[in-house]
Structures are given as C-alpha cells and as structure tokens.
C-alpha cells in the first residue's frame, strides 16, 4: 500500500460512508429485534467491540502493541462503578467520569510506553496492567478485591429507561454510545492528525523530518485510546451493575488483542467484526458443542483464519473481494 501513496494526489481520505458501513450499523440495530433473547450478549459484544476499537487506535494507527489495555478499561469500570456505589448512579456522567480517569491514567503512563521499541512497549503495557491489577486487589476496602464491587445501583437512563435484566436498555445504550464514539473516531483517524499517526507506524524515523512531533502525537493517541477504553469499561460496569477484578486482568488485555487481530487492525471496523465473530463463536461453541472443550474449536478457528487470510478477517475479505472483482473485469 505505501507504494501507491506517492502516485496518488495528496488529499485527505474522503469521509463518505460506504454502503457496507451503513449495512453494518443497520445490522446491529436489526439484531436488537431479531434476537431478543440475546440482548445481554449483544450489549457485551458491543462493549468489547468498543474496547477493541480503542486498542485499534494505538495498535492499528500508531503501531503500539499493548498487552495491558485492560488497565484503562478497568479504571473506567471502577470509576463508574464506585460513583454509583457511593450514590451517583447517573449513567451519562458516569461514562464521562470513567473516560476522564482512564484518560488521566493513560496520559500519565503514556510517557513510559512510547519511548521503547515494540517488545519493550509490549512488556511496559503488560507491567502497568499488572501493577494496577495488584493495586486494585490490595485496595479491597475500595474495590472489593477479588470478591468484586457489588451494590452498583444505576439510575434510569435520561430518567426514563431502567437498566432491565433482559438487556433492552443495555443494548441500545451501548449501541448508541458505540456509534457516537465511532463517528467521532472515524473523523479523527481521517484527519491530518490521524494520517500522521499512520506515518508514525509506517516510517517512524522520517516523521520528525516533515515536522510532525512524533512523541507528542503518540502520547495524544494513547490518551484518547485510554479514554475510549475507559468508556467501554464504564459501560460494562453500568450495564452489569457489578465490577469484578477481572476488568483489569491480563486475560482481558490478551483477549481484546486477539479479538482485534482476528478482525484486522488498522481500520476501526476490525475490532467490531472481531468482537462479533469471536464472542458469537464462543457462545455457540460453548452452548451447543461443548462447555468444556469449546476452546479447542475457537483455537482451530484462529489458526485456520491466520493460515487462510493474513491480517485478520477484514484484510482476508478485502483480498478475496479484490480477486473476485479483478477476475470479473
């Protein structure tokens, strides 16, 4: 891809919505009506999808591999959860509070992360994740430790919609938040700022030469990514009305990375597609095939996808699409 950049006239990518994108979002709306028994699962897929999108901002656009992104997800979740436990159960403000604290933690830790090379960054994020996990466990008097934070009582959304157990509000609320954030982020990555990030990923040594402050941009996108991850965490805390220590766990960090790679990094939609495929597959396999051995089949799925299509589902699909259209013309 970088080779045809030079021959193309320089302008920002156009911002029009592709028909497939519209189909995708309408599909998420339709799913609400088609599968009423799966709304809770649906809301958790949307939240995980948003979390994966946040990881995509740093991995897909700035090339920072993180194995500790749950740190920010967890900070957001605990912020929203604790607010509600201590009497402020208003969802929207809780969401922003989650994003804000996660952004602060993200900004603070970004300086540690951006300075190293790939493996060092990976280990740095992993280390930060573990430190926060241990800290939350130690601070059981605030967080509830491994027993989890219960007593999260949410007020009605806009004073109207109760968070019901069937996940009706949870699904629509998560979908709305995801969509709004997605529109914003879609704009961000298509802006000159977003393009300079891709530049960082592709040719990090040359970026300073064109006058882009590399470290600053990396810090900025890392902070934005942390804020979005925090919002996803806050969403989970609010819709589950419980916060377990697992929100900060290594396995959550690892899982979201797997989901993003599965979907395809670097195009925002990869995280969403990955979350849908991974979690639906997990649900189907563990329900209908085997509760004990479903992981074998999901492992096989991952291996097969890598062998068939490098770059995740989206890249694979694009390659197949290109081959088909070329064959026709």
């Amino acid at each position: 891809m970088p080779d045809d950049v030079a021959t193309r006239p320089v302008r920002l990518p156009d911002d029009r919505w592709h028909p497939l994108e519209i189909v995708f979002w309408l599909g998420l709306v339709t799913a609400f009506f088609l599968f009423p028994g799966y709304r809770v699962l649906g809301s958790q897929i949307l939240i995980t999808g948003l979390f994966a999108v946040s990881l995509d901002l740093i991995l897909g656009y700035a090339g920072i591999v993180s194995l500790g992104h749950a740190a920010f997800f967890g900070v957001g979740a605990y912020t929203a959860g604790l607010l509600a436990v201590y009497g402020w159960g208003e969802p929207i403000t809780g969401l922003f509070a989650g994003a804000a604290t996660a952004a602060i933690v993200g900004y603070g830790t970004s300086f540690l992360v951006v300075r190293g090379h790939d493996l060092a960054r990976l280990m740095m994020t992993l280390g930060i994740g573990f430190l926060l996990f241990e800290a939350a466990n130690k601070a059981a008097f605030v967080t509830g430790g491994v027993d989890g934070l219960s007593g999260v009582v949410m007020w009605k959304l806009f004073g109207v919609f109760t968070f019901d157990f069937a996940g009706r509000t949870a699904y629509l609320y998560s979908l709305a938040v995801l969509f709004i954030l997605f529109v914003v982020l879609r704009r961000v990555v298509a802006s000159p700022f977003g393009l300079s990030l891709i530049g960082i990923r592709e040719r990090s040594r040359r970026i300073p030469a064109i006058g882009a402050p590399l470290r600053q941009r990396e810090v900025a996108i890392f902070t934005i990514s942390a804020a979005v991850a925090g919002m996803a965490g806050a969403l989970l805390a609010q819709t589950t009305q419980f916060v377990g220590l697992d929100v900060l766990s290594f396995s959550r960090s690892a899982e979201v990375l797997i989901i993003l790679i599965l979907g395809g990094a670097g195009r925002l939609y990869g995280g969403l597609i990955g979350a849908v495929v991974y979690m639906v597959a997990q649900d189907i396999l563990s329900t209908y095939i085997s509760a004990a051995y479903w992981r074998f089949w999901i492992g096989l799925l991952l291996v097969a996808i890598v062998l068939v299509a490098h770059g995740g589902i989206l890249d694979g699909a694009t390659a197949i699409y290109r081959r088909l259209t070329r064959g026709r013309s």
Partner: peptide
C-alpha cells in the same frame, strides 16, 4: 461456562 472469575459473564449466563 463462565470461563473463570468473570462476573459479567456469570450474570449474563444466569439471565439467559
């Protein structure tokens, strides 16, 4: 299967 200490999943499975 909750896959471990995963209260969000446990709650969802219970509901389902």
């Amino acid at each position: 299967d909750t896959t471990g200490a995963q209260p969000d999943i446990a709650r969802r499975l219970t509901q389902e």
